[in-house]
Design a protein around this nucleic acid. Structure first.
Length: 499
RNA sequence: GGGCCGUUAGCUCAAUUGGCAGAGCAGGUGCCUUUUAAGCACUUGGUUACGGGUUCGAUUCCUGUACGGCCCA
C-alpha cells in the first residue's frame, strides 16, 4: 500500500469516528444526474426541484466555506455545490477532510443554476456510499469549444488492459465502446430473429474439435477420465440441428483458438454462426451484406463508417470477386496455372515470397490471400470459390471438384466473415476427412479429426443449406473505429505478471 | 518464433558527454462563499521493471530476464 492509500485509509477511519459508515448497505437515489438536470429544465420558475443523486466523485474544488464537485453516474455528470450555510460548517469540514476523488457518494438537495450558468445541485445532505482507498489514475479535463480535452489521461496500454476497471472508470470513451458492442450484438440478434432463426447454445467442451482450421485448447474431465477440447467453432453442432429439423439456427458465443495474439487475434473471441436450410452460398452472401449493413445502421447510426482514416460504405451490394481473379489481380499469380503445391510454391518463390515447405496448395493460396488480397480489401468485398483442401466442410462446384462454393467477406483490410454451401453428402464428407488425414501430418493440429458422430448425423439426412460465420470482435472494431481487438474485448488476454 | 522500440513518483512525461533524478496533475498543510484543468503560498512522495557487468561514479554504456508496443512470420 502506498502513501496515497494510507492517507485515504486514515480518512476512512476518520469517517467512522464521526459516526459515518464508509460502506453502507442501502442507497435511496431518486434521479440519474441527467434526469435531475432535465427535471430542473422542465420545472417552472421558482419551483424547487428536490433530488437525490448517487455517483462517483470526479472533481473537487474547495474554496474555503464552499466546495464545488462533480459526480458521474451511468447517465452523465452533475455539479454539486456544498456551502457551509446549507450543510453546516461541520459537515462541510467532514466532506473536505474525508471525501476524495473516486469515492461514491449520495447527495440530496434542490437544483439551481450557478452564476456561470451550470445547472447544479445545492447540497443539503450527503453521505459516503463507498470509500475509494486506491486513487484512480488521475486525469483532469476541460471543455474547450464543447470538446472534452483530457490532460494526462490514463493511457498506458498494458496498465489499461490489466486494470480495465480503472480504464473504464476514468475513460468514458472506453465505456462507450462497450455500449456500442452491446448494441451491435443486439442488432445481430434482431436481424436474425426477424428472419425466423432460432438462437441455440451448443457445447463449448467438445470431445472432438472441428469446423475450422485452428489449434484447440485441451482440458480434462477428471471423473470421466476424458480429454475435452474448447471449441474452435460451432459449425458441426449447429449443422446437427438441421438434421434435427430446425431450418434456421444461430449461435453467438465464444470460440477458443490456441494461437498467437495480434491486433486482430485474441485466444478467445466472439463468433456468430448461422445455418439456413435451402440456401446456398449466393443466398448467404446477400444476407451477409444485409446483416452487416443493418447492424451498422442500428449500432453506429449509418451504413457509411469511418475506419482508420477510410470512409467505408457498407451498403449492399458489396463487390464480388472470384478468388482466382483477385489473386491474379493483387498477387499477379494465376492459381489455375499451378495445379500442384510444388508448382505454386515455385511461382511464389519466383516472386520473392518465402512460402512454407510443407504447405498444401490450399494453404499457399490462403497465404496469398492474407498477404496480397486482404490488405487491399478496404471497401466491403466478397471473395468466392475457394480451394477444396482448406474447406473440408464445403460443397464443391458442380463443374470443378477442386473448388468449393465458399466465400469470405473482407472490410477495412480484415477478414470479417466466412461462409459456404454446406456439404451435406455423408459420403463426400467422409472422403474429405480421409483427405485431411492424408494431406496433413498427424502433428498438424489444424487437421480435422474424423467426427464419426457427425457423419452419422448426416446419414440421417441433412437438408441442403448455407452456413455463415462472423467475427463479432472484428465487426465491433470496424464500427467503433478501433485499431486493435484488445480495445473491443473487456479483458483481453495478456501474459501473467506478478505485481 | 524473428526484428525494432519501450518500462523513471498514484497518472502523464522530462533528465545535456556517464556526474546530487525533475515538472504538471493527484496527495499533504494553510488562505479563499459561484468555481469548473479554480487560484495563491508552502510541502510529502523514487530500489529509475528485475538480475548481472564495465566504471571512482550508471536512468544513461554492455548483458540476461520479465512484461508491453509496433512491424514481420
Amino acid at each position: 500500500m502506498n502513501d496515497l492509500e494510507h492517507v485515504r485509509l486514515k480518512k476512512m477511519h476518520q469517517l467512522k469516528a464521526a459516526g459515518e459508515e464508509p460502506f453502507p448497505r442501502r442507497v435511496s437515489r431518486s434521479h440519474y444526474t441527467s434526469e435531475a438536470i432535465e427535471a430542473f429544465l422542465a420545472a417552472s420558475e421558482g419551483e424547487v426541484v428536490e433530488v437525490s443523486v448517487a455517483g462517483r466523485l470526479r472533481s473537487i474544488r474547495k474554496m474555503g466555506k464552499i466546495t464545488f464537485a462533480h459526480i458521474e453516474d451511468a447517465k452523465g455528470r452533475l455539479q454539486l455545490f456544498f456551502r457551509a450555510n446549507d450543510v453546516g460548517t461541520d459537515q462541510l469540514k467532514l466532506f473536505n477532510e474525508t471525501f476524495d476523488l473516486g469515492d461514491f457518494i449520495l447527495a440530496q438537495g434542490g437544483m439551481f443554476k450557478t452564476r456561470s450558468g451550470e445547472i447544479t445541485l445545492r447540497v443539503a445532505g450527503f453521505k459516503m456510499l463507498a470509500k475509494a482507498i486506491a486513487p484512480l489514475p488521475a486525469a483532469k479535463e476541460e471543455i474547450i469549444d464543447g470538446e472534452r480535452v483530457v490532460h494526462a489521461a490514463f493511457a498506458n496500454p498494458e496498465a489499461r488492459y490489466r486494470q480495465r476497471y480503472a480504464d473504464l472508470a476514468v475513460n468514458p470513451q472506453v465505456r462507450e465502446i462497450f455500449r456500442s458492442r452491446a448494441r451491435i450484438i443486439r442488432a445481430l440478434r434482431e436481424f436474425l430473429d426477424q428472419r425466423d432463426f432460432i438462437e441455440v447454445e451448443t457445447p463449448i467442451l467438445q470431445p472432438i474439435y472441428g469446423g475450422a482450421a485452428a489449434r484447440p485448447f485441451v482440458t480434462h474431465h477428471n471423473q470421466l477420465h476424458q480429454d475435452l477440447y474448447l471449441r474452435i467453432s460451432f459449425e458441426l453442432y449447429l449443422k446437427r440441428l438441421l438434421v434435427g429439423g430446425f431450418e434456421r439456427v444461430y449461435e453467438i458465443g465464444r470460440d477458443f483458438r490456441n494461437e498467437g495474439v495480434s491486433f486482430k487475434h485474441n485466444p478467445e473471441f466472439t463468433q456468430l454462426e448461422f445455418y439456413m436450410a435451402y440456401a446456398d452460398y449466393r443466398g448467404i452472401m446477400d444476407i451477409a451484406e444485409q446483416l452487416v449493413a443493418y447492424t451498422a445502421e442500428k449500432a453506429a447510426g449509418s451504413k457509411v463508417i469511418q475506419y482508420q482514416g477510410h470512409t467505408i460504405d457498407l451498403s449492399p451490394p458489396w463487390r464480388r470477386l472470384e478468388l482466382r481473379s483477385a489473386i491474379n489481380e493483387y498477387a499477379k499469380i494465376d492459381i489455375a496455372d499451378y495445379a500442384t503445391a510444388d508448382s505454386l510454391r515455385k511461382a511464389m518463390i519466383a516472386q520473392g515470397n518465402e512460402p512454407s515447405q510443407s504447405s498444401t496448395r490450399g494453404k499457399l493460396i490462403d497465404s496469398l490471400i492474407s498477404n496480397y488480397v486482404e490488405p487491399s480489401c478496404i471497401q466491403p468485398t466478397f471473395l468466392y470459390d475457394y480451394p477444396r483442401d482448406i474447406s473440408p466442410l464445403a460443397k464443391s462446384k458442380p463443374d470443378d471438384l477442386n473448388t468449393v462454393e465458399r466465400f469470405e467477406g473482407f472490410i477495412g483490410g480484415m477478414e470479417i466473415c466466412n461462409a459456404f454451401t454446406e456439404l451435406n453428402d455423408p459420403f463426400d464428407q467422409e472422403q474429405r476427412f480421409k483427405e485431411m488425414a492424408r494431406d496433413y501430418t498427424p502433428e498438424d493440429e489444424e487437421r480435422h479429426p474424423t467426427d464419426e458422430d457427425y457423419l452419422r448425423a448426416m446419414r440421417y439426412g441433412m437438408p441442403p443449406n448455407g452456413g455463415f460465420g462472423l467475427g463479432v470482435d472484428r465487426l465491433v472494431m470496424l464500427l467503433c473505429d478501433c485499431k486493435t481487438i484488445r480495445e473491443v474485448i473487456l479483458f483481453p488476454h495478456l501474459r501473467s505478471k506478478e505485481d
